[in-house]
Design a binder for these strands. Structure first.
Length: 668
DNA sequence: GCACTTTATGTTTTT
DNA sequence: CATAAAGTGC
């Protein structure tokens, strides 16, 4: 992008418009982040708002981080203290934490991730059928996102299947309450409920956050839109930014319909379209436009650009995924060498996380530095979750899942049988596992040999809780790790190499917690609550020069000079899950897949490579594949595209590769 | 009863 | 290939 201070006409209009609510329809690469950051600056400049009265809500942590950075850049000379830039979920957590008492929760409630929720549901329906549990989990989540209450779900159940799903929904909600826990969806739903039930709480937040900016509105679900509507209230001082062509979260309950509703709900809404693309060269943009033209439009947009045509697109058919990965790696090496570019100028985008594996292998082989974004987050690693279970339990003794996980990892002689007895006793007394473990009555149920490790465990947790509010988070965490004996248990259970990796992860985690705790002056208990939501992104220095491997979903909002789109095949993109069901649903799913492809294409600034595999390993057997229908929708005939079919670039690049692998300047 | 070893099994995307 | 359920040794 050019000087960030310069705005084009519609951008300026969007920034300056304050008289009524504002909806910005921002095409890909049209500078929407620039509009949001400049609008924040403008709000502060006019004197109408202080930074602490402004909230900018994003959808992902990555977007929030990006927004924070851009704001910090632009607002460096302005008072930005108290400016809220975070995800919907982070705001929900802040509200729920501050108002916990009003919501019938203790302030130290736990936040469950998807795995915890899965385990609870599995428990409730007492089945080993993974598909069933997943289906139930997703149904409950969709109900919550669509603001369907337990009662509504029960009464609207038409089949016995639905009725039993609704029953699980009810007991799931009850279980969470017993654990004093909320899931991700509750972080949106519960604050909204609270606002409806207790208007005075709502007024407090409405007067605190007087101007709201929302990014990616097309990805909000009914529940988020509801929370948003409550928050902005009748004053409706807000700017929403979105693009219906980039809606890729319908599977999670998001509905583009919110873009239409927002016009109905706010008749004075000013709609501004950003149609000038600053990102991509002509051919890339033409392909993107041709593709998305196959989707029905909510808003008519015509994206245009002042850039020249740029490089031809390259479309390659590869024999299989190994060769595809290899080819991409080699091409990046060569391309980077020819253009004198940085590794960080390249991104490889794909549909599913599992595709990263082959790519990683190829990149390691070719000695190309890379970072994988999306996929399993740092906090989802088992060893980190083990540590977090201890922290969660120290913060919230009602958190039974944390209790079970902590008391069994590392192994301390408490197993399934002991827990079974403890669980029955707790159920009969109507208390949490931890509380049951502290009661003297337990002694009658467990022989002292089984009881003693349990008692020692509870004593330790109590001691840590007492100290957690008084001592610095970092040191206490170090001591926790030592006292619990994580390191030994990790080295015990794994071979030296993986153990070292796992232990390093824990050390990184501890260092991150320490640094974050000091920066925000929080104690260990307060830190614990943010962990479920925060991502390590903020501590990772964006300065390392590495190729980015990313899912298409995780790539949204980012841009790269050179993009490789891999696995563009029928069954993968569009994904095979879209097949089989009824026709209207099918059409919508294909449209969403098309938008996903559109998002991928529009990440590219200067060059775009698209690959597909003729054969792909599925399970143990190879399965032959067809090129994606989207390839034929790119209007290739309209521009001089280079279409390279089944050409292995290895031979051409052999010379370059040898050159690249030569040792560099002699080291001292 | 507990922990460790084997064996079936199965894959979208994220807060 | 990584995870999670069933099976085996202590």
């Amino acid at each position: 992008m050019t000087q960030s201070s310069v705005l084009n006409v519609p951008q300026r209009e969007a920034v300056l418009h304050l008289e009524s609510p504002c909806l910005v329809l921002a095409g890909a690469g049209s500078g929407k982040t620039r509009v949001i950051t400049h609008k924040i600056a403008h709000l502060i400049d006019t004197g109408a708002y202080t930074a602490s009265q402004i909230a900018a809500l994003t959808f992902t942590n990555k977007a929030a981080k990006e927004m924070q950075e851009r704001c910090a850049q632009l607002l460096s000379t302005k008072p930005t203290r108290g400016l809220t830039v975070c995800t919907f979920h982070a705001l929900g957590m802040a509200i729920l934490r501050a108002e916990a008492v009003h919501a019938g929760l203790k302030p130290r409630f736990s936040i469950l991730d998807a795995d915890d929720a899965y385990a609870i549901i599995q428990d409730l329906c007492a089945t080993t059928d993974r598909g069933l549990v997943r289906a139930l989990q997703s149904q409950i989540s969709l109900w919550k996102n669509a603001r369907v209450s337990v009662a509504q779900a029960e009464s609207s159940a038409a089949t016995e299947e639905e009725a039993s799903a609704a029953r699980i929904y009810r007991s799931y909600a009850a279980t969470l309450l017993a654990y004093q826990s909320v899931d991700f969806d509750d972080l949106i739903g519960r604050p909204a409920e609270l606002f409806v039930e207790q208007p005075e709480v709502l007024y407090r937040w409405q007067s605190r956050l007087r101007y709201v900016l929302v990014d990616e509105v097309q990805d909000t679900n009914a529940s988020q839109y509801h929370l948003f509507r409550l928050l902005v209230g009748p004053r409706a001082a807000f700017t929403a930014v979105g693009d219906d062509d980039q809606a890729i979260y319908a599977w999670r309950g998001a509905t583009v319909d919110n873009l239409r509703r927002i016009q109905e709900d706010y008749p004075t809404l000013r709609v501004v379209k950003l149609e000038q693309n600053y990102r991509s060269s002509g051919r890339i943009l033409a392909a993107a436009n041709a593709l998305i033209a196959h989707n029905p439009k909510l808003f008519e947009k015509k994206l245009w650009s002042e850039h020249g045509p740029g490089d031809p697109l390259v479309i390659q058919a590869m024999p299989n995924e190994e060769q595809e990965a290899e080819s991409v790696a080699i091409q990046i090496s060569a391309h980077r060498f020819e253009r004198q570019a940085r590794f960080a100028d390249y991104a490889v985008l794909y549909r599913g996380n599992h595709q990263a594996r082959v790519l990683e292998q190829a990149f390691r082989k070719e000695k190309i530095p890379y970072v994988v974004s999306g996929g399993q987050s740092f906090f989802e690693r088992v060893e980190i979750k083990d540590v977090c279970a201890w922290l969660r339990l120290i913060a919230n003794q009602d958190d039974d899942p944390a209790f079970v996980r902590a008391i069994t990892t590392p192994k301390r002689g408490v197993g399934a049988a002991t827990l079974e007895t403890l669980g029955q006793y707790a159920a009969s007394r109507g208390v949490s596992l931890f509380e049951a473990a502290c009661e003297s009555g337990l002694g009658l149920k467990l022989e002292s040999r089984r009881l003693e490790p349990v008692l020692e465990f509870t004593r330790f947790i109590n001691r840590m809780e007492w100290r957690a509010t008084r001592e610095p988070a970092g040191e206490l965490l170090d001591e926790l790790l030592r006292a619990v004996g994580f390191e030994a248990s990790i080295y015990d259970g794994h071979d030296a190499r993986t153990a070292q990796g796992k232990w390093q992860n824990i050390l990184d985690f501890a260092a991150w917690m320490k640094q974050k705790a000091e920066a925000d002056s929080k104690n260990l208990l307060e830190m614990t609550q943010s962990v479920a939501l925060l991502s390590m992104l903020e501590s990772r220095d964006g300065e390392t020069d590495a190729v980015r491997l990313s899912t298409l979903h995780a790539a949204k909002g980012l841009e790269f000079p050179h993009v490789f789109l891999v696995g563009v095949e029928e069954g993968l993109l569009p994904h095979g899950g879209a097949a089989g069901d009824d026709a209207p649903v099918l059409a919508e799913r294909i449209e969403e897949e098309r938008r996903l492809m559109y998002v991928g294409i529009t990440r590219a600034q200067r060059s775009l490579h698209i690959c597909w595999c003729q054969k792909r390993k599925r399970g143990r057997e190879f399965e032959s594949r067809e090129p994606s229908r989207f390839l034929s929708e790119l209007a290739l005939e309209k521009a001089p595209f280079a279409v390279a079919e089944q050409v292995s670039p290895q031979a051409r690049l052999a010379g370059l590769k040898a050159l690249l692998n030569k040792p560099r300047a002699p080291s001292p």
